[in-house]
Design a protein around this nucleic acid. Structure first.
Lengths: 336, 336
DNA sequence: TTGTATGCGTTATCAT
DNA sequence: ATGATAACGCATACAA
């Protein structure tokens, strides 16, 4: 490994001078600086992140938190796209990313401790149980933190606009003449609560009654659970005319169930999804759904975080809502 | 931040003693060790990874390489599942993972340099252009490296058994009576070459002729490209009776195109996919495909790498092939 | 069994 | 404009 000492020797200067030259300090002569930089390049020098982190207390490393337990695993398209754009934007701005977890090996630490252990300059909480004390501890700590799809008032956050997204879907379906809307929802999280509340509120505003039996619990990204909920809805004395699914993937479970009953979409039953993953748009009929802009959310989160890291004095928490977009497929019939 | 110095003061011993006690050195008395460990816990002590890495030359951090450019981005289900299991297994064994890339911020370094910069103990190359010089440099370096779906003879690797997988699919289709098989393939990579070679070889073994026009190029995970290829196949004077798609997701593009032509699956056209993602099994009809065990591959890769890191002396490169499994859906008609 | 001394690679302070 | 020196937190060879 080539270190500043090697460069110092090669150039016949002190290590201090090398360090300054490499970091563009103003008190080094033009020529010396150039000579040092050239030698560094020739020797293939690159700084040692550990030494730098130790000395400066800055690691240029940001932690990313996916608490898999909560069902928001990396392998779900929505989250993996967020991860990908957080990664891309962070790297563009000079930061690496490391996953933060609990229980690394046999030493147990919570998220906050793990982030400290790795000297993370900041943390992005992408998916987690935000009510858990370990998460709250991290969010309340001195480590700059940005949350996605949830907001603590002490942290910046990027929120997908679930309220408006759900409202747009309900209004669209209403405009097509539907008055019996069933809603299958995922695990109760703040996102779920927002969508459900928005669903109810919009229905109320449009004078659509929502019988209790039209609201069914299921699980995000679990076609089987939504298939089951679909079956229950179909068993009702008065069936809904349109079913809202927790997400696009879950809809596939419903699709199967509807086919089993010999019902065709949208002739016999209308459906809408949520997320707007690419898959939803290659299905036939194209799924009517609401697209969340995961890419934008990820890069926005990275930018917010790094801005805070680099300007701790002028920083104030900001909430950014990422607007989505209604994708008008062909799964809602016009029964007006 | 609480350091060993704080503990040393609190316990009235030297820093060295604390360090030894905490690392379970054999030459510290039972009681002192216990006392020190208790104080450490009370004070909420956790080691500083940077200091430790600097001193020991070991970071307990492994680099993961996803060269997005090559189409193997994190957001493709196959890769995100590999990532997830690499992450889980690494954490279980006491290692964090950090993404390795080129051009971090404005300083440009190649993969090898990036890994050195972060003192990675080892690297998993999950998806990359293995012919690129930067990749070869990394693989040939002194940094322990494990590759997925490609093997350098100096590195351990975990390979999905594409040869056997494709053979299984061809034999299955053949047994159903099909003799006109079309093959749509992804970008030319070593994986693609293996599948294509296996396809051709198995067809030859079964006396199935493969006209050149039945082999069509497309792009992995791109339904549109496969849709196009499908259209070309349908335009042929003599249509195939079964189409092999590059992967399950790509099949969706073909599905759309077949529907446009009023062809139903599998009555008018049989199809098979590859990957066996969950989606393929909730579609109706269920897709006939070959499941790659991404979870096993990821955790196997992590284990191989860490084994090498921790036993550099006894280590020898190993190639592990991960067996998959034919998922017999209902998209291949019996025309025997 | 415990303590002393040293250095990992870097940056920052203060002299020169 | 440049250099000597200390310090970041930790682990280890060696001394006691």
């Amino acid at each position: 490994m080539v270190t500043i000492t090697d460069i110092a020797k090669a150039c016949g200067v002190s290590r201090a001078t090398v360090s300054k030259a490499l970091n563009g300090a103003p008190d080094i002569s033009r020529e010396t600086a150039d000579r040092i930089r050239k030698t560094a390049a020739d020797l293939g020098y690159h700084p040692n992140a550990a030494a730098r982190a130790l000395k400066m207390g800055r690691s240029y490393n940001i932690g990313v938190l996916f608490s898999d337990a909560t069902g928001g695993g990396i392998s779900h398209e929505y989250f993996s796209r967020i991860l990908e754009s957080v990664k891309a934007e962070s790297e563009r701005l000079g930061y690496d990313i490391t996953f933060i977890s609990q229980n690394i090996g046999r030493m147990s630490m919570d998220y906050y401790e793990h982030a400290k252990y790795r000297s993370c300059d900041g943390v992005v909480i992408a998916s987690a149980d935000f009510t858990a004390p370990e998460i709250r501890r991290l969010a309340a700590s001195e480590i700059p933190t940005v949350t996605l799809d949830y907001s603590f008032d002490s942290c910046s956050s990027v929120i997908s606009d679930n309220i408006r997204g759900m409202e747009a879907l309900v209004r669209f379906v209403h405009a097509k003449g539907h008055r019996r809307l069933a809603f299958i929802h995922g695990e109760i999280t703040s996102v779920t609560q927002k969508r459900l509340a928005s669903f109810r509120r919009t229905c109320a505003a449009l004078d659509i009654p929502v019988p209790g039996e039209y609201i069914r619990p299921a699980v995000y990204h679990d076609p089987r659970a939504s298939g089951l909920a679909t079956r229950e809805l179909l068993a009702l004395a008065e069936r809904p005319t349109c079913i809202f699914y927790p997400d696009d993937l879950s809809f596939l479970g419903g699709m199967t169930e509807l086919e089993k009953h010999g019902l065709s979409i949208p002739k016999d039953m209308s459906v809408v999804g949520y997320d707007g993953i690419p898959l939803s748009q290659v299905l036939r009929p194209r799924l009517t759904t609401y697209r969340q802009d995961a890419e934008q959310m990820g890069s926005e989160a990275a930018r917010l975080l790094i801005e805070q890291i680099e300007n701790p004095d002028t920083w104030l928490p900001r909430q950014i809502t990422a607007e989505g977009q209604l994708l008008e497929g062909s799964t809602v019939s016009d029964i007006g």
